[in-house]
Design a protein around this nucleic acid. Structure first.
Lengths: 241, 241
DNA sequence: GAGGCAATTCAGACGGTTCTCAGAGGTGGC
DNA sequence: GCCACCTCTGAGAACCGTCTGAATTGCCTC
């Protein structure tokens, strides 16, 4: 729900364009909607043929492509995308058990991939990374997020609080990144769950409390706290004075 | 009921449109009526089929959707809404105990949800937040409400009186927000109760007095008072000087 | 000034939320 | 295959917010 208004726009000022290609309509719709909220111009396609057609006319800067499409070979789609939109960034979606080396082959050109089921945060972060490295978006974007004396580097996967390095697990990192992308904004547990945990996660908001507690130990312990509880609502990350 | 006339209109000057989808007719009607008073163009639907039909023709900017609909799967309705009205804001209504398992995964970036039983203030605030962040309404709307030297920030859930931060509980916050949305207007206790407390609250207006007393302690103590009692009628919030 | 009613405030009970710990289960690395 | 680490579940305890009831204060009228 955040609408981060990241500096995602082309040199001419129009928003970056993303095309979502997935035959699971619900998933494609959710991704498309979310991308719109994040400042992208987003469209979706549910099969290879329409993907090709839309890509030609829409001219996306990035494509989120499920390579497990049923009607067409995902690689087919990829090839025609590349033919009509040379230089487009591609983020692959793939089932967990898909053969790893096949992925490695097709992502050679600087593309990236995410395994299903993924979290929204993961997809967005990867996409941001892709366009940043491709130099498509506005130039100023670095790979670090800064809130007060907290720094999080996406590429290096490093976190510092006032010079001290902080070791985080994967989940802790994603949670902190989400908080840092929304400083001073109170985020509900449901919101956090939706964004940081996989879309098929069945558990309840209790995990959020648990991971907030982990983060506090690593980030706030012995310091002026940055993570605050808003009882009955959620959590906020605030820079210290 | 207040008729706040917030700046809710589309670029072309017509009011924002909201569709309420709930099979509890009474509740849907109350919501629809209230939205109309608040300056929305509002309509209601009581099942999935009519929701779909109305949405297509009415083209709402926001939808309030009970995902516990009996005849249809709420998710079905959601899908067809998304298909015909891409980018529409959705505010989900859900029973308290059904919450966290089902919601996760269906809320795309900008959606939000409220658990039944809710207060009108809660629904309105969430809805305002949705359209504000989606950038649908008039552009000037920030997340802060200001009355005199009192400031209330919805996103950060922060309140300041003349620079001093003020810590409020959830109920206190909602009450103050309602007062601040109606400065200089005398609000009766019944009105406040209807608006700030859940629709199934059985208690009496005494709680309103109690919470006004809490608010005074936090906001007015040691300062020129802003909250005034109008004996036999209700309360008013006035900017000082 | 007395009486009555409205409003305020206090104190305490109750219930829900949140935090934290300990451990089970799973995953990936070696 | 074994080990280390990560993630999640469940339970208990502490904490905090909400509401009730009763006592007190203040206001208005007669």
């Amino acid at each position: 729900m955040t609408q981060q208004a990241p500096p995602l726009h082309r040199p001419d000022g129009t928003p970056l364009r993303a095309l979502v290609v997935d035959d699971e309509r619900d998933l494609a719709d959710v991704l498309t909607t979310m991308l719109s909220y994040e400042g992208w111009s987003a469209r979706s396609a549910h099969d290879g043929a329409s993907a090709r057609r839309i890509a030609e006319e829409f001219r996306p800067d990035a494509v989120i492509l499920d390579i497990g499409l049923p009607d067409t070979n995902g690689l087919e789609v990829l090839r025609s995308l590349r033919a009509t939109n040379p230089g487009v960034c591609v983020l692959f979606l793939t089932a967990r058990d898909a053969v790893e080396d096949r992925i490695a082959g097709i992502t050679a050109g600087g593309d990236d991939y995410v395994t299903k089921p993924f979290s929204m945060e993961e997809v967005l972060a990867r996409l941001r990374g892709l366009v940043r490295r491709a130099g498509v978006g506005s130039a100023d974007a670095g790979s670090a997020i800064v809130v007060g004396d907290l720094t999080l580097d996406e590429d290096a996967r490093e976190v510092f609080r006032g010079g001290d390095p902080i070791d985080l697990t994967a989940t802790e990192f994603e949670l902190l990144r989400y908080l840092m992308l929304n400083p001073r904004r109170v985020l509900s547990k449901a919101q956090i769950l939706d964004r940081v945990w996989s879309y098929d996660f069945g558990g309840r908001a209790h995990v959020v409390e648990l991971y907030i507690s982990y983060l506090r130990k690593k980030i706030d312990r012995g310091r002026e706290p940055m993570i605050h509880t808003v009882r009955g609502v959620g959590y906020v990350l605030k820079p210290v004075a």
